[in-house]
Design a protein around this nucleic acid. Sequence first.
DNA 1: TATTGCACTTTAAAACATATAAATGCAATG
DNA 2: CATTGCATTTATATGTTTTAAAGTGCAATA
Lengths: 297, 297
Amino acid sequence: MNNSGLINKIATQLTQEILSGVITPGGHLVAQQIADKYRVSRTPARDALITLEKFDLLELQPYRGYFVTEDSPQSKARDLLKQLGSDKDYYFQLVDDWLSDDLPVTVTEQYLRNRYDLTKARLNDLLARAAREGWAEPKEGYGWSFLPVAKTTEAFEDIYRFRLAIEPAAMLEPGFEAKPKVLAELRRSQEKLLEVDLGNIPEQLLVSGSNFHEELIKLSNNNYFYSSLKRINQMRRLMEYRAEFHWERLIGECNQHLEIISHLESGEIIEASYLMRRHLQGALKRKTNTILEKNNT
Amino acid sequence: MNNSGLINKIATQLTQEILSGVITPGGHLVAQQIADKYRVSRTPARDALITLEKFDLLELQPYRGYFVTEDSPQSKARDLLKQLGSDKDYYFQLVDDWLSDDLPVTVTEQYLRNRYDLTKARLNDLLARAAREGWAEPKEGYGWSFLPVAKTTEAFEDIYRFRLAIEPAAMLEPGFEAKPKVLAELRRSQEKLLEVDLGNIPEQLLVSGSNFHEELIKLSNNNYFYSSLKRINQMRRLMEYRAEFHWERLIGECNQHLEIISHLESGEIIEASYLMRRHLQGALKRKTNTILEKNNT
DNA sequence: TATTGCACTTTAAAACATATAAATGCAATG
DNA sequence: CATTGCATTTATATGTTTTAAAGTGCAATA
């Protein structure tokens, strides 16, 4: 077995799903199904299963399959996660350095390779990702430029005002469909957030905020709304992952999300669109205040 | 001197500027200025100048500079453009194949390299660009997926409705500044379009439509509006560059653009925003009709 | 004194050989 | 007969060397 990022990623995901109870003890994990889910071949899927088996999270019944161990040992799961996650994530390193003004505006690939000790291909991935997410671009000649986005309070506000322009509008698109199934799913996940002991929640669930908005805008059936929100959310996360989390705020936002869902469920799209506007306006006000406070201390 | 894409690009641009009269005969082209404009070093800028000089578009006065020849020979300029442009543009080839359903949804890099006879690095550029423009993405394992965007009438409409959501809104951003200099520049370029004999115009000027909208949205001082419009315009061009051009339409659009500029110049932002909405709605209606006609023949 | 001309350095792309990871087909087994 | 196990094929990454392109500093000169 090898030690690639892909196997690592799948193993991490599976472990989190076991930890959070999405996959229940005794469950049968089939390599092919996992492969399909990630749109890869069985090989990395199987290798991920083997990884989990080594940590006693799974039991192997030869030629029958991998089954989640009945007494699912949480501590081992956490050990595994720790080990898997210990891979330095150079991307976040890069982001962090850029956000904290620790990088020149333009750099050569050489410079970055030396600084982060990366191979050409890895660096390429990194830069390609940064370019896709909109904050880096190749110069015409040699080198790359980093764009001055998302670094300041204003950038936060800009993001929220952009979302104010597109999210309520997306609901009023002619193709908008309030798919009951999607709405039910969203409702479930928001309600779950309110129920759970928040202190014990895997990070994975914390994305459900962005997720809510992205799933909702997807209902517009206009891909351009969806993809631009997705892109902007990626950038927003770059900033927010560095900030501490506000639990109280999350609860308030969940309730507003649920309200929006309710309106959509009863076909009151205009009202839902209006509430979305209010919701974002509120978030804009609060975030701005918080950041200002922080900068003043 | 070498034969790279960058020199080629600069040379093309310069030739077009001479052809269209942006650069007037006798004008002095300074390598450093060109270099600055493209954010590259003097080397490729200078090489581009040498290329033009070889075609008698420029006259070299040793140690003094390159000057546009007084009798600027149009035929030679066209020859040069032809020669420079004969470089196959693999990106557009790829786009074209994808838009005409001539490519599988998922492919390996190998496949693409064979099909288009590309080196690894070139293919990488290509895919990176496609990914940035939002219609290709790497699969988790090996291979790439192409996304089904911008291929149908609906996609056209989606784009215009997205623009309806952001462009008028951008004008109402708190940071919006109706910079007189920018407005004057835009006015000039739109008026020029109306003056010129359209049949004789280099393609370069045809982008001035997108350019108008992009420069305008930039005035909002909210980068997210600008960058999402830019991205969507790139995709729109992928579709439109295959369609024949409608000159009558261009004239109408220019006039509307000028009207919007007028309002901005006299500080009537709300009116300008409203006109922008009307302008886009009109374009939406017309484009949709045209495409429908085309499909019915 | 601004600009070109030119030598020289740095950067990155190409080419190729090798290593690793992923895809795939089929046998083995419960 | 579904699934794993495993061997084989294919695809991509890595490392090294070579080559081409771009960046840079300074002398030359109008």
